[in-house]
Design a protein around this nucleic acid. Structure first.
Lengths: 285, 285
DNA sequence: TTGCTCCTCACGTCACGTGAGGTGGC
DNA sequence: TTGCTCCTCACGTCACGTGAGGTGGC
C-alpha cells in the first residue's frame, strides 16, 4: 500500500491528478483511511493508471476513457472509437499545419515587405445574392472611378423602374466584379452592379427584355478570401495585392471573379471614408 | 450604426463573442445607449474585428491580440511574437502528428492481432539508480526463472555484507537487464540485479575487490518505452512483444538493454501476482 | 514540539455557449 | 398587445494547478 505521494512518484503523475481521478471515479485508491481520509494505492493499480495515460495520449477525454475502461467495450466498439479518434486526429494535424503555414506566410511578408501588412485576409463562405449589373470593358484603370459612379446611379434608377430595389446597409450596396484572371491596367473587363432584394419573376422577365442591364443571382461560394479596407478608393490596389500574395503564400488559387462590395454609401464615398470588402473565390490548391 | 445582430451577420461572428470582446475591452461598440444598454457598432469597425479574427487564426490568445493591436507594437516586436508563435505552432504540428500515428498504430494492432493489446506502452524519462548485479549467459529461456531466484538472494546477501542494502517498495527491488539486441531463446546475455541505496565509496571499493558481483550506477535515460504487467512471470514475453511492436510502429529504436523492474516482492512472486515494469531505452528514429 | 504529508474546499484557467429572467422597439 | 431583439447575470466547459486553512504522523 502506497501513500499518494509514493504512487505519484512511481507513476510520474502529480498528486493533484490522482485526487482528480479519484474524484471523478476514474481511479479509486484501494483504501481510504476512515479517520484521516488518507488515500492508499496498490502497485497493481499501475496498469490501470498507465492505460488511462496511454488513452489520454491518444487524445481521448477522461469521460471517453472511463467508458473505454469500465464499459466492457468489445473489440468492434473499440475499433469504432479509434476510427473516430483517428478522423479527429487527422483534422487536428491539418489544422495545425494550416496554422503553421499562415504564421510562416506572415513572417515571410514581413521579411519581404519590411513591415507587417496593414490588411488582414480571412477565409469564409458567402451566401448567394441578387444583383443588377452591366458588364463593360473599361479602357484604363484610372477611369474606373468615374465610370462606376455614373453607371451605378443609372443602373439603380433603371432597376427601380422594374420594381427592383437596392438593399440598404448594413447589407452591401454597390458590388463590382472583375472578370479578368490577371491584374490589368487597360481594357478591364468589369461588371458594375448593385445588390438588390430577390426580385419577383415578373420583374426579371420585364427587365431582361427591355433593358441594357441584367439581373441575376450571384451564386454562393463555399470559400472566399476576404479583406476589408477603409478610406479612399485608391487604397484598393494595396488590398488586392495583399490578397493575391496571401492566397499564393497559403496555397489557394482563384476560382472566380474578384468581388468588390461597398459596405458604406454614397456620402462616405465622397468623404473618402469608404469601407469596402474585397472577396476572391478560392479553392485550396 | 449597426445593432449587434447586424454587425454579427456582417462579420459572421456570434453575438456572444461580440459581447465577450466588449467585456474584455478588445472591441468596444462605438456607442452604447445610456437607457437601453444596446450596443451599436460601425461598419468601419470591421477591419479591427477582422484583424482580431486573423490573429486568432494564427493561434494567438485574445490577451496577446490585445497587446498586438493596441500595444503600439513595432515591426521588430511583431516579428519576435511571430517567431515565438511559429515555434509553438511547429511543436503543435509535431504533437498532432505523433498522436495521429499512435492512434493509427493502435488500429493496426487490432487489425493484425484481431484484438486490442492488453498492454499499454508509455514513453517517459527514468532517473539514474544504483544496482548490485552479476552478468551471465543463461543457456535456455526456460531456465531464467530458477536462475534469477537463486541469483537474487545470493546477490543481496553478499551485498549486505558490504553494507549495501536493497531498497524497499515502493522503489523497485529486483532489476534484470537483457543485453542482447534481439530476442533469443538460448545463450541469453542477462544481468541479474537489485536496486540499492547509493552506497558509500568505501563499500564500493571493498565489494569491487572481493566479490563476484558488481555495484554500479545505471545511467538516467531521457526516454524509455515502458509497460507494466501483472501476474505470473510467463506473461512477460507477451508484454515484451507488445513493446517491440509498439516502438517499431511508432518509429522508435532501442538504444540500450531492456530493463525488467520488479515492483512487488518475493511473496507476490510466489503467488504469481507480480507487478513488473519493462523499460526499453529508445530514441525516435 | 516541529516539520512534513495529507486532507478538503474554493477559485482560476480560456473563450466563449447557453439558459434564466427581464426590458425596449415596432 | 405581441413577437422579436436586446440586456445582464450566472453557470458550465476540461483537466487539472494553486493556494488557504486545517489536521495526522513521526
Amino acid at each position: 500500500m502506497l501513500k499518494i505521494s509514493d504512487f505519484s512518484r512511481l507513476a510520474r503523475v502529480p498528486t493533484a491528478t490522482l485526487r482528480y481521478y479519484d474524484q471523478i471515479g476514474l481511479l479509486r485508491p484501494i483504501e481510504i483511511d476512515r479517520f484521516t481520509d488518507y488515500r492508499y494505492y496498490a502497485v497493481d493499480q499501475l496498469p490501470r493508471l498507465n492505460r488511462i495515460l496511454a488513452l489520454k495520449d491518444l487524445g481521448f477525454t477522461l469521460e471517453q476513457i472511463a467508458r473505454l475502461i469500465d464499459g466492457k467495450i468489445d473489440t468492434a466498439e473499440m475499433r469504432g472509437m479509434l476510427v473516430l479518434r483517428q478522423l479527429d486526429a487527422q483534422r487536428e494535424v491539418v489544422e495545425s499545419q494550416t496554422r503553421l503555414s499562415r504564421v510562416a506566410a506572415r513572417l515571410a511578408e514581413i521579411e519581404q515587405e519590411g513591415a507587417p501588412s496593414p490588411y488582414d485576409i480571412l477565409l469564409k463562405p458567402v451566401d448567394a445574392l441578387w444583383i443588377v449589373s452591366t458588364r463593360r470593358f473599361v479602357e484604363h484603370i484610372d477611369m474606373i472611378g468615374t465610370f462606376c459612379e455614373t453607371m451605378h446611379s443609372s443602373i439603380q434608377q433603371q432597376a427601380r423602374q422594374f420594381g427592383i430595389f437596392s438593399l440598404e446597409p448594413p447589407a452591401p450596396g454597390l458590388l463590382n466584379l472583375y472578370h479578368a484572371d490577371e491584374y490589368q491596367e487597360t481594357d478591364i473587363d468589369m461588371e458594375v452592379g448593385a445588390v438588390v432584394a430577390p426580385p419577383k419573376p415578373s420583374s426579371i422577365q420585364r427587365l431582361s427584355g427591355a433593358s441594357n442591364i441584367t439581373v441575376r443571382e450571384l451564386p454562393a461560394v463555399p470559400l472566399v478570401a476576404s479583406g476589408v479596407f477603409r478610406g479612399a478608393m485608391e487604397t484598393m490596389t494595396g488590398l488586392v495585392r495583399a490578397l493575391l500574395i496571401w492566397i499564393s503564400a497559403n496555397n489557394y488559387s482563384p476560382i472566380g471573379p474578384l468581388r468588390e462590395l461597398h459596405l458604406t454609401d454614397e456620402s462616405a464615398r465622397q468623404l473618402g471614408q469608404n469601407v469596402v470588402e474585397i472577396q476572391l473565390p478560392v479553392m485550396s490548391a
